[in-house]
Simulated assay, not measured.
Amino acid sequence: MSQTPPFQIKIVPVTPFQQNCSLIRARNGSIAVIDPGGEVDRLIAEADAWDGKIEKIWLTHGHLDHAGGAMELKEKTGAIIEGAQEEEVFWLSQISEQIKRFGTHMEAKNVTPDRWLDDGDTVELDGNVFEVIFTPGHTPGHVVFFNRHMKIAFVGDVLFKGSIGRTDFPRGDHATLIASITEKLWPLGNDVQFVPGHGPLSTFGHERQSNPFVGDAVVGRAGANTQGPG
């Protein structure tokens, strides 16, 4: 007899950027929302349809398409905001400026997390523990959320299927990003599935075999920068 999984995942692409916002529902109905970039009322409706209550908001980083709806979601649900790492104040404190820069008509507020996170910390949802992995490079305070039991990672804009995150934004660094992927993510295991900030899911093993920027065949030699989707 198969056991009910300890949590379920629903991926909801939001905003014109089609950012993968993830809703995690524990068995008791509590929900964590990872990277609510916008369309807050839609996210709340998704939680209601799932017979759940949004209690946690987890941020991988502070770019508009990932954090733009965080404060509104907190105001409407009472959920607490955890993440990213404290260096991400650089981006979270200027979300309103990002709106002007991207020329979008989105409404968004600067974010003040209830709790900053750092490497080795954990976040929790109804007993489900997610490890926090500090993965700078795309942004200075980027983090990844990893559940070891289910072997799944929510990687924001660090890694994509067939690509890696952009490093041409302020305080991005290509070499740091490569190190974050190869030194922090690869050791978690080839069988780990990951949810990227944009696009389809993949596994670390698949990317080690085929990713043209960070696969095993190219690690150790200079790789060209990428203008990836994030």
Rank of each mutant, 00 (worst) to 15 (best):
210 S>K: 11
32 A>R: 04
98 Q>R: 04
78 G>V: 05
103 G>W: 11
77 T>I: 04
16 P>M: 11
215 G>L: 13
16 P>Q: 15
37 G>C: 11
150 M>H: 10
177 L>K: 01
159 L>Y: 06
177 L>Q: 02
91 W>Q: 05
214 V>G: 00
190 N>D: 15
18 Q>K: 14
158 V>R: 02
66 H>A: 13
107 E>W: 10
84 A>Y: 06
74 K>T: 03
57 I>Q: 01
221 R>G: 05
190 N>P: 06
122 T>M: 10
164 I>V: 14
180 S>K: 01
177 L>H: 01
17 F>D: 03
153 A>T: 06
144 V>A: 06
74 K>I: 09
127 G>D: 14
220 G>P: 11
105 H>C: 07
133 I>D: 03
129 V>L: 14
223 G>L: 12
206 H>K: 13
69 G>H: 02
186 W>I: 05
14 V>C: 04
130 F>P: 00
40 V>Y: 00
208 R>C: 09
17 F>A: 09
133 I>F: 08
26 A>N: 03
222 A>G: 14
86 E>P: 04
141 G>E: 08
61 H>W: 14
63 H>C: 09
168 D>R: 09
44 I>D: 00
17 F>S: 00
12 V>H: 01
14 V>I: 13
48 D>G: 07
10 K>V: 08
151 K>T: 04
164 I>F: 09
180 S>R: 04
105 H>Q: 13
227 Q>M: 15
122 T>A: 09
104 T>A: 10
39 E>K: 02
32 A>W: 09
54 I>P: 00
96 S>D: 05
230 G>C: 14
170 P>I: 13
57 I>E: 03
46 E>H: 05
168 D>T: 09
147 N>H: 15
185 L>F: 08
170 P>E: 09
167 T>R: 06
211 N>C: 05
99 I>A: 05
12 V>C: 03
72 E>T: 12
197 G>V: 13
104 T>I: 14
96 S>K: 10
149 H>E: 15
209 Q>K: 13
95 I>M: 03
135 T>V: 10
149 H>N: 07
181 I>K: 01
207 E>V: 06
47 A>W: 12
48 D>H: 14
134 F>R: 03
65 D>E: 12
168 D>H: 14
169 F>I: 08
95 I>T: 02
148 R>C: 09
230 G>E: 04
157 D>A: 12
179 A>R: 12
145 F>G: 02
11 I>F: 09
79 A>Q: 03
14 V>M: 06
31 I>T: 07
126 D>T: 06
51 D>I: 03
104 T>W: 12
35 D>K: 12
88 E>L: 08
104 T>H: 10
67 A>V: 00
183 E>T: 08
20 N>V: 06
184 K>A: 02
165 G>D: 02
144 V>C: 07
112 T>W: 10
213 F>D: 00
201 L>Y: 07
109 K>W: 13
